[in-house]
Design a protein around this nucleic acid. Structure first.
Lengths: 215, 215
DNA sequence: GTCTATATAGGGATAGAC
DNA sequence: GTCTATCCCTATATAGAC
């Protein structure tokens, strides 16, 4: 085999490798996010990826390692987006508007993630520990500082920044995490539910700003 | 065997039966609520109940039926409490205060239930269907009517009652459902977390009332 | 009703050919 | 890297004695 052929083969192998690994991760994502760690079956993930079950072990050694790859990826992305949307350089009230609009949109596009993360962390609280490691907490600190400044300037009523942050995130996340329950309680069809969440992009920030703003 | 002995035996059997069945349900509750349907092991439930594994099948036939008994019980109780606390005869704003205080307390006393319900309904949305059957939706309808009345009286700003209800429930439930995540994000120890939730009994209703009240 | 022992299947993981 | 065949353990469920 001459050198050029050799390089081509290696290249093909590398591309193939990456593609398969990615296919597996995507398939595993779909299955794990709905069925969870213990409800998911390796066979189903293999079928979903269009490959053989043995491949899963070839690439990820064990179910637990595959799951962890999926979970870490989903959780890291999700929390880093919180920071990203909080990091925009705007005054507090506009920052809240910006955050809610973008985060609700993100949730609409990834509607299984919140319940998935809540479920898995509930069953195994240690999993969340590995998510926050290198990540600086600067965005949250900056936001807390923004809140305290706005309070001292008399722009908003005195409020515990921690409570406010949880209120904001909860108002965005809860309706998505509890989707099937809310659809049932409010008797909403799928499109009505989606419209309901879409509406929240504007409504939630109005609600929050009303709650804290000094008029 | 004379009749009195017979009655005694039946009585004993009946008492024993009810006690064992209840023990199993309590044990299953503890295990299922943390580990979920697929993470839980019948052996662990048996150990937790201090009885033999075969007993579980004697009383509940299958794991699925046992799980369903636990889930239905937890979910029915949880949603009926929402109605109960919304049904109190008070003006809207006081009703919201009353609801938040009592519902947050209920959540503190049953802190595993929200994540448990969210998880299981996420994995199997059909489960929620059996929860709402005989139950009239009168309390919710009454509350929606209260909201619309308060709007037309100019007591609160115009608001979609459905959005408001989800806001209220979300503000109460989310911080409990996402407990381990929130403890991590806010760097709270167990007691600090409990104090954080305790504080919400007052803070959340103030937040909501500020958001909707016409000043 | 409660136990011990066991049947049976399902699923994660590996061996080995290609 | 990818497949087929298979190992082997675990977990639900049942049989049957007491």
């Amino acid at each position: 085999m001459d050198e050029i052929t050799n390089i081509k083969e290696n290249f093909k192998a590398e591309v193939s490798h990456h593609s398969t690994e990615k296919d597996i991760l995507e398939a595993a994502k779909r299955v794990f996010q709905i069925k969870g760690m213990y409800g998911a079956r390796m066979q189903e993930i293999a079928d979903e990826a269009g490959i053989n079950k043995a491949m899963l072990h070839y690439y990820f050694r064990s179910k637990d390692k595959l799951f962890d790859a999926v979970f870490q990826d989903a959780a890291r992305n999700f929390f880093s987006k919180i920071r990203e949307y909080l990091n925009v350089d705007k005054p507090l009230l506009e920052k809240i508007e910006y955050f809610v609009e973008n985060y609700v949109e993100l949730l609409l596009q990834n509607s299984y993630i919140p319940a998935f993360i809540i479920s898995e962390v509930h069953q195994n609280p240690d999993r969340i520990k590995n998510v926050f490691m290198e990540s600086g907490v600067s965005a949250e600190m900056q936001f807390i500082s923004d809140i305290n400044t706005a309070v001292s300037l008399g722009i908003i009523h005195p409020v515990d920044p921690k409570q406010l942050i949880i209120n904001i995130i909860g108002l965005c996340v809860f309706p998505v995490a509890a989707k099937p329950i809310i659809k049932t309680i409010l008797s909403l069809k799928e499109e009505e539910y989606l419209e309901f969440i879409e509406t929240r992009k504007k409504e939630v920030s109005k609600f929050i700003i009303n709650a804290i703003k000094v008029h």
